[in-house]
């Protein structure tokens, strides 16, 4: 098996719509497996017509729970995304980094608030 592997998302999930968490999980499982054994992975979004944050959180954001930022940076590439979808992915990645580095404080800050039952 080559060290360079391309995952065509639309082919893998069998749809041009990257919208559901289930399909995102399918992509995550594949990428996680390949990164774990040291492969260079390119995720291709060619032929994808709809992409939302919910899908990307699961497919890519979740990788930050399994791997270091360094491994992801050196082993992962994306292609086939328009510039606004690249921005969307950047938001997802930044959010994921924050989530895994700082998970508890998200909740604690809120718990300090006083609330009343209606």
């Amino acid at each position: 098996m080559s060290d360079q592997i391309k995952i065509k998302v639309a082919d893998l999930i069998g749809s041009p719509l990257c919208i559901s968490a289930e399909d995102g999980q399918k992509v995550f499982d594949k990428v996680e497996q390949l990164v774990k054994i040291g492969k260079q992975v390119t995720i291709s979004f060619e032929n994808v017509t709809m992409l939302i944050s919910l899908f990307l959180n699961v497919a890519i954001g979740q990788l930050y729970g399994s791997f270091s930022e360094d491994s992801i940076r050196t082993q992962l590439k994306v292609e086939g995304l328009s510039s606004d979808d690249m921005e969307l992915l950047k938001r997802v990645v930044d959010n994921a980094k924050k989530y895994y580095s700082n998970k508890k404080s998200y909740d604690d800050a809120w718990l300090e608030e006083d609330n009343n039952e209606e």
Partner: peptide
Amino acid sequence: NQPGGLGLKL
């Protein structure tokens, strides 16, 4: 254990 909560902000 998955990140999320971006949709409504976007």
